[in-house]
C-alpha cells in the first residue's frame, strides 16, 4: 500500500515540478518582455504583478518535489549521535507534526483564496482576479502534507539494521 502511495506521490510531484518549470520560464519571459517593451517606449504597466504571481507558482509548485528529494535542510549536529530507533521516532514525530501544520497552511491559504474571491478582490494595477494563483499555492501545500504523510507511514515500518 505504502509503495503504491509512494509511487503515486512521486509521479504527482514530478508533474507539479514540471509545471513549476514552465512557470519559471514564463517568469523569465515576462520580465524580459517587459524590459524590452519599456525600452521600446510602451511598457506593460502590470508586468510586476504578473511577475509576483508567477513567482508564487515557482515557489509553490515544487514544494512536494523538494520534500521528496530532501531539499529542505535541517540542523544536523546531533543527527549522527541518535540511535536508529531514536532517529525513527524523531522522523515519525517530525513528519506527523509538519503534515498537520501544512494541512493547516493549505486550509488557511485556501480560505484566504476563497475570501478574496468572494469579495471580488483584484490586483492593484491590472485589476485582474488572482485567487486561482492562491488556490494553486494552497493545493501545493496540501501536496506537501501528503508527501509528509507518506514519510510518516514509511517510518512505521521497521528500517534496515533495526530489530
Amino acid at each position: 500500500m505504502i509503495i503504491g502511495l509512494d509511487k503515486f506521490s512521486n509521479n504527482l510531484n514530478r508533474w507539479f515540478n514540471w509545471f513549476g518549470g514552465i512557470a519559471l520560464v514564463g517568469l523569465t519571459g515576462i520580465a524580459c518582455a517587459n524590459m524590452l517593451m519599456r525600452i521600446l517606449g510602451s511598457p506593460f504597466k502590470g508586468a510586476y504583478e504578473l511577475v509576483g504571481f508567477f513567482g508564487a507558482l515557482v515557489v509553490a509548485l515544487p514544494l512536494g518535489y523538494a520534500q521528496v528529494n530532501r531539499s529542505h535542510i535541517s540542523v544536523d549536529i546531533l543527527g549522527r549521535r541518535y540511535s536508529a530507533k531514536t532517529k525513527r521516532f524523531v522522523n515519525a514525530f517530525n513528519s506527523l507534526v509538519c503534515m498537520a501544520f501544512f494541512v493547516l497552511v493549505a486550509w488557511q491559504s485556501g480560505g484566504y483564496a476563497t475570501a478574496i474571491w468572494k469579495r471580488g478582490e483584484t490586483s492593484e494595477t491590472l485589476r485582474i482576479i488572482y485567487h486561482p494563483f492562491v488556490y494553486v499555492v494552497a493545493l501545493c501545500c496540501l501536496l506537501l502534507a501528503f508527501v509528509l504523510l507518506i514519510d510518516f507511514l514509511k517510518t512505521l515500518r521497521p528500517q534496515k539494521g533495526e530489530k
Partner: peptide, 17 residues
C-alpha cells in the same frame, strides 16, 4: 501605482507599474 497608472494611461503617458 494602481489608480495612478490608469490615469496616466488615459493621459497618454507610458505608465510604468
Amino acid at each position: 501605482s494602481g489608480t495612478g497608472a490608469k490615469i496616466l494611461g488615459l493621459l497618454g503617458a507610458a505608465a510604468v507599474g
